[in-house]
Nucleic acid binder design. Structure first.
Lengths: 395, 395
DNA sequence: GGGTGTTTATTAAGGTCTTTACAAAACCTC
DNA sequence: GAGGTTTTGTAAAGACCTTAATAAACACCC
């Protein structure tokens, strides 16, 4: 609330134009009347007029000459809207099996989206696919790389937010040796940021719920990751915040050598499947024995009321609740939102987790499922890229 | 960076005077030359002159006429300093055994401090002592209650930050039924805030280390609490953030009925003592058997190299590390700082915790001991009160 | 003891921005 | 087509900061 240093009159103008631009953004994608901006910003008409003039000249907003829908009598209003093409941003989700990219305009409209699967888990191959996907996405949006105003890349592993180096990424072999950040910085004129995928998913979920508060957003699939968003801002800590996969749950955990953390080995999608298989062998009466077993089948069976599956789900939920309970007690989040493949389990899992968390915490958070589809991470990357653009707005 | 709504020219002036006042504060308690303020703020001399004039008139700063120490030749500089008495703040620490109060001036100078022990743990009695301590503190500082600009009260238990109501406080019987907030609001004209004691201790510790970053500050005595400070701001979550005492550690935990949480029952000061007693009975060769056993004795023996005591300390440290590891993984704090009675254990405990945490987390935080003395909580309360004053500064 | 130099305060002029007030424009309704 | 309504546009005034020039106060030096 006042980190500004010196302040001459030009500062005022910047402040006010920024305020006007924000108002225009909040109305996007609808065009907005000038008189309306006056009300929204609380500024006077000449000020708003001046600001809009500047913004048009700078290319941030555009006029909407044809005042097609003028309500009552009166001079037709000058209407302006955000010129999305002024600063399109590119988001990239480099997952272990797929690479997807998207381009949003300033107003948050999706201009292009491309998804491609990666066969081999080798870093060099991934990099080639990344380049191809970016090229295709730019083509689809009809843009050149130089026109992109911000790039945010989501990757598994721990990322050093300063340099953009990937410090730890077990799921893609050789991924840490690739300097993804530098590779992309060469291709774009704009800032390029590399960020942990779970963190970006959390950001996307948080924006969905819009508003202040603390959110713990979990990505739960083969692996487990989480992001913490406090009052709309991503919490990074020393850089590795949200790595819940490495929580050591109570009880024995199978020892593997693939770089996964204890919690992932205990209740990752694969572990759930394995646990169900064991249960099925012990209980031939279960419907689980009727077909191939995977995580989805377990949750389906539990939803249908199969006792054996229900027991497995409850076990998984308890382990999860026990694992995150300390973090919930320390953070006291308003909500814990679960996304990723396991989130498709739905109410069965949710109810069980809620029950166990209520037992283990003082102020149990809402437990919910991410309403976002598969492109949660990509959406988060694009959100952060847009944030970047808006943050350095008065340039 | 721009939450301001409307902006006329007067806004500029407020911005600039605030900037000047901040600069004066940062130099406190030393008086500062006007020319120096020009450099610090980046504003021009006339602007600074005007701002200082306004501030003097409003009573925030005062002149230092006698330019006693003028260095080289030149016109003697006008020097100003923060007028501490402009807005003294009162901090209160209502602990289970003692009530202490302090008054700081704007510059953070301690004007008065009073500490009194409470015999009976009854709420009504505590309230009487609170009133007496406040009266004594005001007297010591030579101030009236109406002159106090902000009041912050530290109390154990969970506090609703909006109403100031105490929702849960096992250590003082009947404490929840007392509306401490209303009781004090009647006595002061200024805002009164009630806050959890561990949270305030965390704030004090965070200010000590000054700078951005994430801090988990633990208060460890008979009970266990913690506070989370992120970039200098206290994290509250839904209100009960930092309640690590209710983390359920692995292993069996004695069941008591005194409202304490599982972790407190497992490794609170009392539990440490109890564990040491058991160990001493089993190992008569230990120096622990030579005298009365309490937590301090255990740590002393461990420091001296007694194997049995070392084992107890290691056990305690491991339980602690296991309990907070999930929170450390989620938060990725820069540091975990331990205060409270157990903190006097020193290096033995610290080293053990560091070792176990390194094993359980990805980016192990610095583990340290609070350099603040017994009045950590009181200091935190005063810091928050000062923050309150500075936040509503341009009034 | 007076001159010189240095540091600082004061004053005046100039520029930028917002505000206030007023006039003009364009469209609808009657 | 006259009147009304809503909005835009323009001009003058006020507030504030900045630049620049001037004056003041003291130490040092000759």
């Amino acid at each position: 609330m006042g980190d500004e240093r010196a302040a001459g009159t030009p500062v005022l103008r910047r402040l006010n134009t920024a305020s006007v631009l924000r108002a225009v953004r909040d109305c996007a994608p609808d065009p907005v009347r000038l008189a309306e901006l006056v009300k929204l910003t609380g500024l006077t008409r000449p000020t708003v007029g001046q600001a809009v003039e500047d913004l048009v000249e700078a290319g941030w907003v555009q006029h909407h000459h044809p005042a097609a829908a003028s309500r009552k009598g009166g001079r037709p209003a000058v209407r302006v809207s955000l010129r999305g093409r002024a600063a399109p941003v590119l988001g990239l989700d480099v997952g272990p099996h797929t690479v997807s990219a998207g381009i949003d305009d300033l107003a948050g409209r999706r201009l292009a989206a491309v998804r491609r699967s990666v066969d081999h888990n080798k870093a060099s191959r991934v990099l080639t696919v990344v380049d191809a996907v970016i090229a295709r996405t730019l083509e689809e949006a009809g843009l050149e790389a130089d026109e992109i105003a911000a790039v945010v890349v989501a990757t598994p592993g721990i990322v050093d937010s300063g340099s953009g180096r990937i410090l730890l990424a077990p799921s893609v072999s050789g991924w840490t040796s690739v300097n993804l950040s530098d590779h992309l910085r060469d291709r774009f004129r704009c800032p390029v940021r590399v960020e942990n995928d779970a963190n970006l998913a959390a950001l996307a979920v948080a924006r969905e719920r819009s508003g202040p508060g603390t959110l713990l957003a979990v990505q739960w699939g083969e692996r487990l990751g989480a992001g913490v968003v406090i009052d709309g801002r991503l919490h990074r800590g020393t850089g590795a915040a949200g790595e819940i996969g490495f929580i050591r749950p109570p009880g024995r955990v199978p020892d593997t050598d693939d770089g996964r953390g204890p919690l992932e080995r205990a209740i990752g999608a694969e572990a759930i499947t394995e646990q169900a298989r064991r249960a099925a062998r012990a209980h031939p009466e279960s419907v689980l024995c009727d077909g191939p077993i995977d995580a989805a089948a377990v949750f389906a069976a539990a939803t249908a009321g199969d006792a054996v599956a229900e027991h497995v789900v409850d076990d998984v939920a308890r382990t999860f609740a026990q694992a995150i309970a300390p973090a919930v007690l320390v953070l006291a989040p308003d909500a814990v939102v679960i996304g990723g493949g396991v989130a498709r389990a739905g109410t069965v899992l949710l109810a069980a987790i809620t029950r166990h968390l209520a037992d283990l915490t003082l102020t149990p958070p809402d437990v919910g499922i991410s309403g976002l589809a598969e492109d949660t991470i990509l959406t988060g990357a694009l959100r952060m890229a847009l944030d970047d653009v808006w943050r350095r707005l008065p340039a």
